[in-house]
Every structure is written in C-alpha cells, then in structure tokens.
Simulated assay, not measured.
Amino acid sequence: MSVALAVATSAIARNPEFQGADPHAMMIDGELWVFPTGGPGGSWAADRFGAFSSRDLKTWTSRGEILRRDQIRWIGDDGAKDHFLWAPGVATRNGKWYLYYSVGPQNPTPSRIGVAVADTPQGPYRDSGRPLVTGGWRAGSQFEAIDPMVFVDPRSAKAYLYAGGSAGAKLRVWELGPDMISVAREVKIDQPPQFTEGAFLHERDGTYYLSYSHGHWNGPDYSVHYATAPSPVGPWRYRGAILTSDARHQGPGHHSFVKTPTGEWLIVYHRWEQRSAPAPFKGERQIAIDRVHYAADGTIRPIVMTDGDAAPTLRKAPSRR
C-alpha cells in the first residue's frame, strides 16, 4: 500500500509539517523533497520508504512508495528474525538517483547499510544486490552501521559516505567508487566531539559543516551540534550546539540542511511536540522546518524552533530578464 498524504488547505505555513523522523531533505526542480523514516499514513513497522515534496512548505504531495523491505533480496542473509528500515539518505550523480538506507537492529546480528538506484527521485529504486557497509565489532570497537549520508564534494567531485552512531557512537567515512554503489576506501577521521548519530555535511563559502545529533533519540537531551573544517573529512573544529529542546518542543535532531533557490538556508529535522518530561518519550515524532542564520564569521547562530505561521515558506527566485 502506498503512503498517502492529504494535501493541506491552510494558506499559511505550519510547523510541524507532518509525522515522520530522520528527514533527508533536498531541493529538486524548485521543490523541497523530504525522504523520512515513516511518514503520514505510513507504516511504523519501518518496512518501506516514501517521499514527500512541496513548492511552498504549506502543502505537501506524496511521491508514493519508493522502496519496500521485501524488494531487498539480501536482507535476510544474516538469519535474523526481524529487520527494519531507518534513516534514508539520497544523492544524485550522472543522471541517476541513489537511496542509501539503514537495516537494523544491530543485535543479534550487525546492522547494515544498503543502496538502491533509480532514474528519477521518486523511483522506483532498484537495490544494488548487496550491503554497502556492515556494522559489528572490529578490534574491540563497536560500530553501528546506521544513518547514511552521502556528500559529493563540489571541489574534488569525490563522493563521501558518512555513517554510524548509537551503539558505539562512532562516525566513519568512506570515499565511494564512481558507480556510487561501491566503496573505494575508508578515510580515517578524528571523532567529532559530542557525536551520537545522524551526521550531515554541507558546504558554504568554502567551509565544510559537519552537523550531527547528540543524546538519546527519545529524550530531552537529543540535540544538534556541529563542527567546521577546510575539507569534507576534517580536521574538525567543534562549534557547539545549535538546536536544543525548548519550553514547547523536545528532542530536536536527525536533520538536513537545504539551500533554497533564493539563497536562504533551512534546517529540516524531527522533534517531539511536548513540554519537558522524563525520557523515554511516547507517541510519534514530527518533522519541522526552520531558518538557519550564519554570523559574519561563518558560524551558525542558535536555531529558533517555530510553530504555525511563523514557520518558513519557500519563496520563488526572481526571474531573470
């Protein structure tokens, strides 16, 4: 069954936007697309991915089901009883679209990251036929292969996969092969301070921003921190927290940064719509979008969470004559 989303009729912006978690967002042909875990009307059994898009951040269109668990042929090769799909990441190159995703849980067998390929952003995506990265224990170090994000460096044209977190709270980085579905080599990096999971990389004016979630996904300490570097792989300079719980919203995190056609930067993330309370939180996470502001020195100012008509809208870039 495809994931469906009723189109909103409100004439104002709104936060939160819709139910979901772990949103990977990107601009595609003037629309903001969101690829989340779960989603409106979706199955929280985490057995499929959908996509949603908006031209104004007021109304959203479901792009349907893009990949199901039963379409991943290798998923049962580990012999585990249960498998769940989490935290998608999307990249495009050479006219193709690539969906990277987590297969968990970590126990009793290692978590894995897969990749599927499509001709259009809404798919259908065809799985590559094998895991791209596998978690587990190596030389006494625990690594959970979750939360993939791929960044194609505009300077070198190299594609980097960032993944890891939760169990072990370890970030690892690989350079991908030209086909985007194979690993060329692992890149050794220093671990960024306060890293837990959900890494995201973006570049602005020659500075690379590595942002990530810290804390417990279902608690008030969940938050977004970041570090900067002169390259996609460091060395990192820790800059602190930029998105934290407030009086009306708890546990914001697992986010994406997006630059709009007008040059405005947005952060797309999930949060719990409740006041402060002890963990673990109950209910469902909601996806929200807020503005990002940079100081003159390039640092990111603390992000203010908004509701209702205070949320950002997607403005059209002025036409050129």
Score class of each variant (00 low, 15 high):
1 M>I: 04
12 I>C: 10
12 I>F: 08
15 N>D: 14
15 N>G: 08
16 P>D: 07
16 P>V: 10
17 E>S: 11
17 E>Q: 15
19 Q>M: 14
21 A>D: 05
25 A>F: 06
25 A>G: 07
25 A>N: 07
26 M>R: 15
26 M>N: 12
29 D>I: 08
30 G>M: 15
34 V>R: 01
42 G>Y: 05
54 S>N: 06
55 R>M: 00
56 D>C: 04
59 T>N: 14
65 E>K: 01
65 E>T: 06
72 I>N: 00
74 W>C: 08
75 I>D: 00
76 G>Q: 08
76 G>C: 02
76 G>F: 08
78 D>A: 10
78 D>N: 06
79 G>H: 06
82 D>V: 08
91 A>M: 09
95 G>S: 03
100 Y>C: 02
106 Q>R: 12
108 P>Q: 08
109 T>V: 04
116 A>I: 00
121 P>I: 05
126 R>I: 11
126 R>A: 07
128 S>C: 11
137 W>V: 15
142 Q>H: 13
146 I>P: 01
146 I>G: 01
147 D>P: 09
147 D>V: 01
150 V>D: 00
153 D>Y: 00
156 S>Y: 05
157 A>T: 15
157 A>M: 11
158 K>V: 10
162 Y>G: 05
164 G>A: 11
165 G>N: 02
165 G>D: 00
170 K>V: 13
184 A>V: 12
186 E>Y: 09
189 I>L: 11
190 D>Y: 04
190 D>G: 13
192 P>A: 02
193 P>V: 12
194 Q>S: 11
195 F>T: 04
196 T>W: 02
197 E>M: 03
197 E>W: 05
199 A>N: 10
199 A>S: 14
200 F>A: 13
203 E>N: 06
205 D>H: 10
210 L>V: 11
212 Y>H: 04
213 S>V: 04
216 H>I: 09
217 W>C: 09
218 N>Q: 12
220 P>W: 06
221 D>Q: 07
223 S>D: 05
224 V>G: 00
226 Y>N: 10
227 A>Y: 05
228 T>I: 14
230 P>V: 09
235 P>Q: 12
236 W>M: 02
238 Y>P: 10
240 G>M: 02
242 I>A: 06
247 A>G: 08
247 A>I: 11
249 H>R: 11
252 P>T: 07
253 G>K: 04
256 S>K: 00
257 F>N: 01
257 F>V: 06
264 E>Q: 14
271 R>L: 08
271 R>E: 12
271 R>V: 13
275 R>G: 14
284 E>N: 11
284 E>M: 13
285 R>I: 08
289 I>V: 15
289 I>S: 03
291 R>N: 12
295 A>K: 14
296 A>L: 15
297 D>T: 13
300 I>P: 03
301 R>I: 04
301 R>F: 01
301 R>L: 15
304 V>Q: 14
304 V>H: 14
311 A>T: 03
312 P>R: 09
